[in-house]
């Protein structure tokens, strides 16, 4: 299993954390400059795209399946996107290869064991991260790294 990237969005639709492990799959990349109809994108653009996608998808799913419904993941021919949202509207998103098993539990564990423990409970870390300040927390990053490594090896 390969993990491509990981994002956290807060309730203000702000990307407060992003991390990339491997380059995006081929089709998402733009080899040798922008292709037709596609401009060069930065990591920030990626985050915005990801947010837009999960936000729309989630609203759509709720319209179809009721207020409590939520989507878990979607797969394209190139990647699989895993999604977990807390009742506080924090969204955890992970992009992996398409053969990956469901990461919903993994994302929930990242929330419970890493995000809440190291970020939320750290009194020096701000509650909100306005203006793209983002989660800047060594303990969180290290544990996340470790967590993902064990998943990848497994």
């Amino acid at each position: 299993m390969t993990v491509y990237s990981f994002y956290i969005f807060d309730r203000h639709a702000e990307c407060i954390y992003k991390r990339r492990w491997l380059p995006r799959p081929a089709s998402l990349k733009s080899p040798g400059g922008p292709e037709l109809g596609q401009t060069m994108r930065t990591g920030d653009d990626d985050a915005k795209l990801v947010f837009g996608t999960v936000f729309s998808l989630r609203n759509m799913v709720r319209k179809l399946g009721g207020e409590d419904d939520n989507f878990v993941s979607y797969t394209t021919s190139q990647y699989k996107l895993h999604y977990y949202e807390t009742p506080t509207n924090i969204k955890f998103v992970m992009l992996t290869d398409i053969k990956s098993p469901s990461m919903r539990i993994a994302l929930q564990q990242i929330y419970i064991n890493l995000f809440v423990e190291y970020v939320v409970k750290n009194p020096l870390s701000p509650v909100e991260h306005p203006g793209g300040l983002g989660v800047n927390n060594e303990l969180f990053e290290e544990s996340l790294e470790q967590f993902v490594q064990t998943r990848v090896l497994a």
């Binding site: 929330y111 419970i112 809440v116």
Partner: peptide, 19 residues
């Protein structure tokens, strides 16, 4: 207020309850 904003996350993490 500042405590509550953090405490809710701990509450949700521990209780696992939904909306």
């Amino acid at each position: 207020y500042n405590i509550g904003m953090r405490l809710i996350e701990d509450f949700l993490a521990k209780s696992g309850v939904g909306r």
